[in-house]
């Protein structure tokens, strides 16, 4: 068994496909430090010009919501359909609205 101490830490990789688009999560990579993580992410995730910019962040630095809290977090938005434009009926003859 190799020592767990020696395993390079895990980084999450985010890639901007082209300028004008947001960075998107594409996967993860092991590296000794952040700079190496960017180099490895370049090799693993952009072999076919998939990106123009890479972000990496230590996976252990991400705080994620718990799926068990999903109802508490997201259900309150369910009954607020008046936040959508289709909630309001406007006569057809009114234009540009």
């Amino acid at each position: 068994m190799s020592e767990p101490r020696n395993q390079w830490p895990l980084y999450e990789v985010f890639i901007r496909a082209r300028s004008g688009l947001e960075h998107k999560h594409v996967g993860s990579i092991h590296a000794a430090d952040a700079r190496m993580a960017i180099e490895h992410a370049r090799d693993v995730y952009t072999r076919r010009q998939e990106g123009v910019s890479i972000w990496v962040i230590r996976s252990s630095d991400i705080t994620a919501s718990d799926p068990a809290d999903a109802e508490a977090l997201f259900d309150p938005a369910k009954d607020k359909i008046y936040r959508h434009p289709t909630f309001y009926s406007i006569p057809d003859e009114v234009k540009n609205l």
Binding site: M1, S2, L10, S28, I29, H30, D43, Y45, R47
Partner: peptide, 30 residues
């Protein structure tokens, strides 16, 4: 060379996916 590099990359995508299930890369390689 491009094809063999792809195979290496595919291995990395898949190890990453396996790691999301709570197993470490070291264990898998072992």
């Amino acid at each position: 060379m491009a094809k063999v590099q792809d195979e290496g990359g595919h291995g990395m995508y898949l190890y990453s996916a396996a790691e999301t299930l709570g197993v470490s890369r070291d264990e898998l390689i072992d």
